[in-house]
């Protein structure tokens, strides 16, 4: 991995919550247009690491470089300004706000009247329809509150929001958790499309089969550390499972195949 200038270069990232060292000196590299699968067991630190990159969590230690320039994200606004977008595991939607409002949350089109900025609702709705169409997401009424949508539609909106604003880095934390089979395929297709356009993608998922469909490389987290990385061509599901659950554990359970089955499902 000797890319000229990595899109993202994280070094020595550490974060502690109370007595738990959630991240311990973690490094992460990401090339332009690369799709990186970030895997690990629950509590391994995947989500926290990705939130550090999206500005939602501020680490105690460590540096982040975007396109070779060191950045410091004190808030999600800073990360957004650097074109880092994230689809959060909890989707981060406001239930009592309509679809268009959620898509444009924090960057609403505005028009100024007498120096006061007002929401440009008409443009917001028109743009929202266009955005969703481009991504193949169908929502019949853009003015409906998102609380009235299905889990899959909500997830589609969260993904559409992150993918639509010209991201350089797109982080997806369990983007397919609530989706039906066909919708999962649509998301994987979306990942391929945006990465072909040069967007770097970090995909966090428990669905290991998805990793092998879209990822170029896999990084494995274990108890707050990045313990391994593999080019996708050089590895297989069995090895990734062993890495996720930890070698010691995998050695003990080698006698039966339960560990693998549990982790994959």
């Amino acid at each position: 991995m000797a890319a000229p200038i990595p899109r993202v270069r994280m070094r020595g990232i550490s974060k502690r919550y109370g007595t738990i060292q959630t991240l311990n000196d973690v490094a992460l590299d990401l090339a332009p247009g690369e799709v990186l699968g970030l895997v690990g067991d629950n509590g391994a630190g995947k989500s926290t690491l990705s939130k550090v990159l999206s500005g939602a969590v501020v680490p105690e230690d460590g540096t982040i470089e975007i396109d070779g320039r060191e950045v410091r994200f004190a808030s999600p606004a800073d990360a957004r300004a650097a074109h880092v977008e994230m689809v959060y595991q909890d989707l981060s939607l406001c239930d009592t706000v309509d679809v268009a409002g959620n898509l444009f949350l924090g960057r609403e089109p505005r028009r100024r009247i007498l120096g006061v900025s007002f929401l440009d609702k008409r443009r917001m709705r028109a743009d929202a329809v266009a955005m969703l169409q481009r991504l193949g997401i169908s929502v019949p009424d853009i003015t409906v509150h998102v609380e009235n949508l299905s889990g899959g539609q909500r997830q589609s909106i969260a993904i559409g929001r992150a993918a639509s604003f010209d991201p350089k880095v797109l982080i997806m934390d369990e983007p397919t958790a609530a989706l039906a089979v066909a919708e999962v395929e649509a998301v994987l297709e979306l990942i391929r499309t945006v990465s072909a356009r040069g967007v770097s993608v970090i995909l966090i998922t428990h669905r290991l089969q998805d990793l092998f469909l879209v990822c170029d490389r896999i990084q494995v987290m274990y108890e707050g550390r990045a313990i391994a990385e593999r080019q996708i061509a050089d590895t297989n599901v069995e090895e990734v499972v062993d890495l996720i659950v930890g070698r010691k554990f995998s050695a003990r359970s080698a006698r039966n195949t339960q560990a693998e089955g549990v982790a994959i499902s």
């Binding site: 939602a56 409002g101 960057r107 609403e108």
Partner: peptide, 25 residues
Amino acid sequence: TQTPFGRYVTGIGANAEAVRRAGVN
């Protein structure tokens, strides 16, 4: 009903963390 501020007021009541993650103070 017509300004970003009003939208954020509703958003904070619905999901304050989502609004914060959207880059709003």
